[in-house]
């Protein structure tokens, strides 16, 4: 494992901690898209099916369990916690997330490495993760007031993807010289989706102003 990969995983973990902290400490999930969070539950469940069939390392196993557990915890908070659920911007979280599932699944059926249940679902999880942030970005665009924790959450989530791209470059040229087209292309698409957000995030940070995305 190289430093970019580790840094990527840590920013991913950190983004989740920031989100859980926001929800737990402020008892509010305003500005957070439940649809994106539900998609992440599906992403982790379909990607980590090999949790009990293939051991990579203790690090991988622990991280997989943490990602599955925290994604469930976030969805639970937003749906069932009696205070938190009242802060959910249901009317603004309008993205039809179910429409992302079918195209990703069809694409995974068409483009994969091995035609096995596990491999197709693993591929599906990569395609779905690439677009899972869309409901969140749409919600941010509709929000007048983006609080710092929400902005930071999305920032760290985007940073994780950017670091994974650097990890792939490093791996390809300096470690194993293997092409991994499916994770690469979906990862690049995913990173590109953050470009606009990053632009306004950095702009607001430079100007010491509150983050606001143009409609």
């Amino acid at each position: 494992m190289n430093l970019f990969r580790l840094a990527g995983d840590m920013t991913h973990l950190f983004s989740i901690i920031v989100l859980l902290l926001k929800i737990h400490a402020t008892k509010s999930c305003s500005g957070i898209s439940l649809k994106t969070q539900e998609l992440y539950v599906i992403v982790f469940l379909t990607r980590y099916l090999d949790l009990f069939t293939r051991f990579v390392s203790l690090y991988n196993t622990v991280m997989k369990i943490v990602f599955i557990g925290t994604s469930f915890a976030i969805v639970w908070y937003m749906r069932y916690h009696k205070v938190v659920k009242q802060t959910y911007n249901k009317d603004e979280d309008t993205f039809k997330h179910y429409f992302l599932l079918l195209p990703c699944f069809v694409l995974a059926l068409l483009l994969h490495n091995e035609f096995t249940t596990m491999d197709v679902l693993w591929t599906f999880s990569l395609y779905l993760e690439a677009v899972a942030i869309l409901p969140q970005l749409v919600l941010l665009q509709q929000s007048r007031n983006i609080d710092n924790l929400t902005g930071n959450y999305v920032f760290f989530l985007g940073a994780y993807r950017g670091l994974y791209v650097l990890n792939w470059i490093y791996r390809y040229f300096l470690q194993d010289h293997r092409a991994r087209w499916i994770p690469w292309i979906s990862g690049l698409v995913q990173t590109a989706l953050y470009a606009d957000f990053f632009y306004y995030y950095i702009l607001s940070w430079k100007k010491h102003e509150k983050l606001k995305l143009p409609a």
Binding site: R5, D50, R54, S57, N60, N113, E114, R180, W181, P183
Partner: peptide, 10 residues
């Protein structure tokens, strides 16, 4: 395979 190699990532 490509798949096996890529699956050590999260």
């Amino acid at each position: 395979t490509e798949t096996q190699a890529a699956k050590d990532e999260l």
